[in-house]
Write a protein that binds this DNA or RNA. Sequence first.
DNA 1: GATTAAATTAAACGCATGTTTAAAATGTGT
DNA 2: ACACATTTTAAACATGCGTTTAATTTAATC
Lengths: 225, 225
Amino acid sequence: MSNLKSHASDAPSSVRASSNKPSTQKRILDTAERLFAKEGFEQTSLRQITQEADVNLASVNYHFGSKKALIQAVVARYMDVFMPALDEELRALDDESALTTLQVFEAFKLPLFSLNGIHKRGTERFLRLLGFAYSETQGHLRRYTQSAFGNVLQHLLALLHRANPELSDEEMFWRLHFVLGATVFAQVSGQALIEIARAEFNHEVNIKTVIEHLIVFIAGGLERP
Amino acid sequence: MSNLKSHASDAPSSVRASSNKPSTQKRILDTAERLFAKEGFEQTSLRQITQEADVNLASVNYHFGSKKALIQAVVARYMDVFMPALDEELRALDDESALTTLQVFEAFKLPLFSLNGIHKRGTERFLRLLGFAYSETQGHLRRYTQSAFGNVLQHLLALLHRANPELSDEEMFWRLHFVLGATVFAQVSGQALIEIARAEFNHEVNIKTVIEHLIVFIAGGLERP
DNA sequence: GATTAAATTAAACGCATGTTTAAAATGTGT
DNA sequence: ACACATTTTAAACATGCGTTTAATTTAATC
């Protein structure tokens, strides 16, 4: 883990010097993101990634060190946008006089949709990545999130307590995890569900619709007396 | 798939003739169940199962045909108890005059707890197996459940519609899947959560407690106007 | 007790994975 | 143009997986 060659700590930031083709690093990152979001981390092999990215197999280990590190790099690219944005939204709620659960969860919407700046379907990808991070046991990812953005999550918990002062710590603990479960699951099974829904109800269904439905649901569950 | 030796279609039903040691088949089934519920299907290897069951590696393929078939056998042992029990409970609700969502979900409690007859912690194991069946993509399991117990699931959907006549088909579709997500997730992350909760709140937490919390939550989410 | 059938066993097969190696190619600074 | 560092490459490595094979042991049948 220590005698690696460079991991491109700086170097060719994003675009190759005299070529219109993105750098090897970016190609790997983009392709990995797409495949991870589609199939999950464990289901996606480095051979699949490097083949589709049209780079050499060994370049993943050269540039990122390991598959774990690649996974973390992919997730971090979204976390680094999402978490500060969420932080800002949550701060805006601090001054709210009559805070509701729905308000807290709706604070997620803008940060989530802002991820579409990273990629056309960034929101969807991020949520699916999160889902896989939880359903597969990617302990290192959980540790990274906790240590890098633990304060934001603490803030979230405090706001929910403020909106639901009658709920005990324990009640809140369980309900928050159920919320997380519904969210994660909706995204991991999301694509399949969206297709079923599309066929069943004969109209377009997109990720925004799903999130709208989801927020109402989890707010209902969380507020239950 | 067709030229297999026997798969023990009948034979030494459950206990060995002149030995106090369970049959190879049962040892495999029990050990597989324990490991599958602990780590998931894909994360558990046949070598791990056969080693802990103290049987030969090849005996899994001899008795069950394949790993997939073993997974299905493990799950079926629970499904065959759970689904008829649920069916009975749901039928009892048909005559209810003012049906509530909570009643429908509480109909799950007895069937779930009855699984403790199969194993001391049968409820927990079953829910975790279900969780893995969904979060890992075990398509064959979904197909089996759908074809074997599809009628019970249809019945469930009908009852929920009766309890919530104001919800559109689409609304119900999404909420039911969120319910499933919260449930599944609670179980897959369940053991870790229970341990955190135990440490955090300084009192015993068991699967029944989690289910009680869960049912209130999902009923709240589903009923939300 | 001989003859089948069923079950168990050790070993190998074929394949896929992440990672490492060492040489070749490319780029950079002087 | 040279020397050096960086990057790319093809190949191999080491490990683990589910499955299959063929021989042996155990059990059952006549």
